[in-house]
Design a protein around this nucleic acid. Structure first.
Lengths: 347, 347
DNA sequence: GTGAAAGCGCTAACAT
DNA sequence: ATGTTAGCGCTTTCAC
């Protein structure tokens, strides 16, 4: 129609055969130009490329997949896409995909739910993705047994005994120690923590690092200083209110996500308490917007975008080279001191 | 191995033929059981289902796609996945997919960039998605000409003359009028607006509605009350600072996303000004967390999740029924009055 | 360096 | 109600 190119009759997408006919060769030669160009005569190769462009030919992914079992699509499974740290991670993955081969990206959000994670794996198997990136799986190790053993997988924030699985880790012990040291250095001795849900591995791991850090500083671990914010700002707000209304309220609170830190600050505010004057709050992740919160959030930067980009690169590399030794990469976090932490009113 | 089921030799996925052999029928009968169960004898049907389960058979999507040209995957294109309103929309889409057929979901974020939007379409064409949902495309109408004409498409927050495209719209005129009326009712006469970037259709449309609303209230539209926040809280913060430092600063500011509203509040705060005492701020979208901001944000709720869920449902329906008349659905917004707006200090 | 031919796993038209 | 058969578009031996 408006397309000047002479397409095939019914405007159906051109096939290998169409290109072959136009170029005066057989379809196998055309296929060869695409998959093993070095095996074909440079002159014919160039001619065939012209025909490919002229017909706007694109290989049919179904036919190709039927042969190769490859879909040129990878999947990313995160616990919650509305968590900005994960959304940023996803952007990192996408940016890596853009700069490398044109892989499609299937994003699935499991809502921190093991059951959903399983059904996502089932869905992925039915869609034959070439590889998967799992981020902080709800049940510790994601249900990878539901996926083909050979399918490359990258685990983020989780370890797994299995060989041939690449892993991206966050140095929680170090990061959380830095956070606690910062608070301790300001004079805080009564530090509480706001977790997500009590059962998630993410919460448990961060709690463990937190307890370690307190011990290192000679501070006691108090059970009444452990609260659950269910990953949302509104629940964290309630958690903060509970903490501050207790008999001996903490002077500083570490929330294991920025979102919950913001909720915690809102909770203090609701009780007429100011942050950081009356209580200090420190977050985790450096989510976009944390610097513009009121007050700007002191937090640990976890480079979500970069991690996503690197994780995707690792997956892509393994896709091309299945036998390469697996890597385990540890990311360190960076303490960003902003305005939500200050010395306590009275030591 | 640990699987008790008697799988086929090499543990390769079972095929139609394997099931047929086990059931003592031909592969076409098995295919029929899956695609047109009503055409097959209930007894054999049941037996075949058992064999399917026993072998854990799943149709090969490539072979199936080669026949049907259907991938059972749809795509969602949003301007920015780190915008919580869009992330929520995506969750809505996913939830609808879960409750209906097991469609895969490809999410692509265009970064408000027309060029990227085009390359996304190219990628989607190569992945043969069955349908696409476009949300507030950067260039007005998304580059649908790059996608097969027959591919079902749902447009969100955009209209398009083309027939057979389903549309989900936001009643901006009404919503923004409500916001301005609220501000005007509190006594504000000097109302500024913080847009995203100046060139995006989203910004232009909201500005138009804003001007209309001001006119309706008998308020003048001042060009120096139009600022750009580039969709981020940090840029919105700078924009707010510019507004407040001007000769005749506004007493109220309407930011066209909550994220930018939060940045605006941070800007006021940086100048030692309080919200809502010194300046009122109203947002748009009711993003998760807006209620826990400091102060809780007055905003317009746009039901992102529900819209995503409904848009996906519409797409799914059209997938099953390509000839059904297209729908155009208008969503109204709801004003949520919280604590970031109040009467101006001096009228 | 290129062509011929087989077959990946499935669907559907046709035959019985 | 079920079986037979012919492709879908591609990759990859195997000949030449």
């Amino acid at each position: 129609m408006s397309n000047p190119l002479s397409k095939n009759a019914k405007d159906k997408p051109a096939t290998l055969k169409d290109v072959a006919r136009l170029a005066g060769v057989t379809h196998s030669t055309v296929s060869r130009v695409i998959n093993h160009p070095e095996l074909v005569n440079p002159t014919t190769r160039e001619k065939i490329w012209q025909c490919i462009r002229e017909l706007d030919y694109h290989p049919n992914p179904f036919a190709r997949g039927l042969q190769t079992s490859l879909s040129r699509t990878i999947a990313l499974v995160v616990p919650n896409i509305t968590n900005l740290a994960f959304a940023n991670f996803a952007r990192g993955v996408q940016s890596s995909l853009e700069q490398n081969e044109p892989y499609g990206l299937i994003i699935a959000s499991s809502d921190e739910d093991c059951i959903k994670e399983k059904s996502i794996c089932l869905m992925l198997r039915q869609h034959w993705v070439d590889g998967v990136i799992f981020v902080s799986s709800a049940g510790g190790i994601p249900p990878i047994e539901l996926l083909p053993e050979k399918m490359p997988k990258v685990l983020v924030e989780r370890t797994c005994k299995l060989d041939n699985i690449d892993t991206y880790l966050l140095d929680l012990d170090d990061g959380i120690k830095k956070a606690c040291e910062h608070l301790h250095g300001l004079g805080h001795g009564k530090i509480a923590i706001i977790l997500g849900d009590a059962t998630s591995i993410t919460s448990k791991e961060r709690l463990k690092s937190f307890k370690k850090a307190l011990a290192l500083l000679g501070l006691p671990s108090r059970n009444d200083y452990i609260e659950k914010g269910m990953w949302t700002s509104w629940n964290a707000k309630e958690a903060m209110i509970r903490l501050l209304k207790s008999e001996e309220p903490p002077t500083a609170v570490f929330a294991i996500t920025d979102t919950m830190a913001m909720g915690a600050i809102a909770g203090a505010w609701e009780l007429g308490l100011k942050v950081p004057e009356d209580v200090s709050v420190i977050g985790f992740n450096n989510e976009p917007g944390s610097a513009e919160y009121n007050p700007p959030l002191t937090t640990l930067d976890t480079s979500s975008f970069e991690m996503g980009r690197d994780a995707a690169e690792t997956l892509l590399r393994r896709l091309g080279e299945p036998e390469r030794p697996s890597v385990e990469i540890m990311y360190s976090t960076k303490l960003l001191v902003r305005s939500s932490t200050a010395p306590p009113k009275r030591c």
